[in-house]
Computed example of a mutant assay.
Amino acid sequence: MRRLITSMLMLPVALALTLAQAQAILAARVNGTGISQEQLERSFDEDLRQRKLNLLQIRNPNRLKEMKRAVLDRLIAQELFWQQAQVAGTVASPQEVEQALQSTQGQFKSKEAFERRLLVEGYTPETYRLLVRKQVSGTKYANSVGVKGAAVSDEEVHRFFVDNPEKFRRPQQVRARQIFIKVAAGASDEARAASRSRAERLLEAARAGEDFEQLARTQSEAPTRQWGGTMEPFARGQVARPVEDAAFALAAGQISPLVSTPEGFHILKVEGIDPEVIVTEDQARARIRAFLEQRKANAAIEKEAERLRSAGRVEILLPL
């Protein structure tokens, strides 16, 4: 079975706890070992970067608190797994530590840039290596728990296939470009008629042989203009009904009549029609098994974190 890695334990790019920070305000204690508020804030900032969010986007203070508490819970789990790794004998080997170090260093432009970052964070290469050893060991222990809990039977694979038919069928789809001339909400009859006249002139130009993609880039008023009018492939029920009916009535290469919707006027050119695809159980079996194994492994890891937390002494020292 392939190696399983839980995302909450992956080595962060943002470098973590320094000696000075360890002596600062604590966010939590795990069996006597502190997790500093500074470490929590750095990990939270990294979580926001991975989600492509910033604090200004999180307007609800309760939501902000929930997100920060989730990050703290992950840090607590990391510490619990490191402590248990020492008990279980799954401490990372020097080779595993070196591999993780090289992976993190590879995210910087050069070794020198990586070492400068270490110095800014208050680390020497030796003290940072100790931190990496701790993180890799915790991950190694979590993976061992996940592997043991990830067995999936043939019956479970079959049942997932039977219970989720929509996951193994892609309906017929149309690939098309469009030129769209919008009509403002509440526009007068005269304004709508002017938009129609403009759209009709563009339709005549397209049917006369002018490059449809170029017309879409220069004349369309839809966001798709930047891609020459290319739409996402769509099946029935995914776009406005008049647009759907027009598109599915065309063959590849054909241009539609003018299509009217409350938003404006559409001209479609069908690029291709993708037939319905149905994946058989035999074809899907390996992917289903891998998915279920990963899901079971993650559940086993979460359960072990809860067990270690209940069996130990975890103190939350901030109002989260």
Rank of each mutant, 00 (worst) to 15 (best):
G209A: 11
S197Y: 02
Q178C: 08
A187K: 07
S188N: 09
Q178T: 03
S195Y: 06
A185I: 01
I181S: 05
A191G: 00
L202C: 07
I179D: 03
R192F: 07
A205K: 12
I181K: 08
S195D: 07
A199S: 08
A191I: 04
L202N: 06
D211C: 04
R196D: 05
A208M: 09
D189P: 04
R192Y: 04
R207L: 15
R207P: 03
A191H: 01
D211Q: 11
R201L: 08
F180T: 06
Q173W: 01
K182V: 00
A193L: 15
A199H: 05
A206T: 09
A194Y: 05
D189C: 03
R196T: 09
R201W: 00
V174P: 09
R198K: 14
A184L: 11
V183T: 14
R192E: 13
F180V: 09
G186N: 11
L202T: 05
R207T: 13
R201N: 07
R207H: 12
E210G: 01
R175D: 07
A176F: 11
R201D: 11
G209Y: 11
A191T: 03
E210Y: 06
A205Y: 06
R196L: 14
E210K: 15
L202G: 02
S188E: 08
E190I: 07
A194K: 15
S195H: 10
D211R: 08
G209N: 14
L203D: 06
A208L: 09
A206P: 15
I179S: 10
S195R: 15
R192M: 11
Q178W: 00
A185M: 04
V174Q: 09
S197P: 03
R198C: 01
I181H: 01
V183H: 03
V183K: 04
A185G: 02
A199Y: 04
R177G: 00
A184G: 09
F180K: 02
E200C: 02
V174H: 07
I179Q: 10
E190D: 06
A208E: 13
A205M: 13
E200M: 11
A187R: 02
L202I: 12
F180L: 08
I179T: 11
R207F: 13
E190H: 00
A191Q: 13
R201G: 12
V183P: 03
V183S: 09
R198I: 01
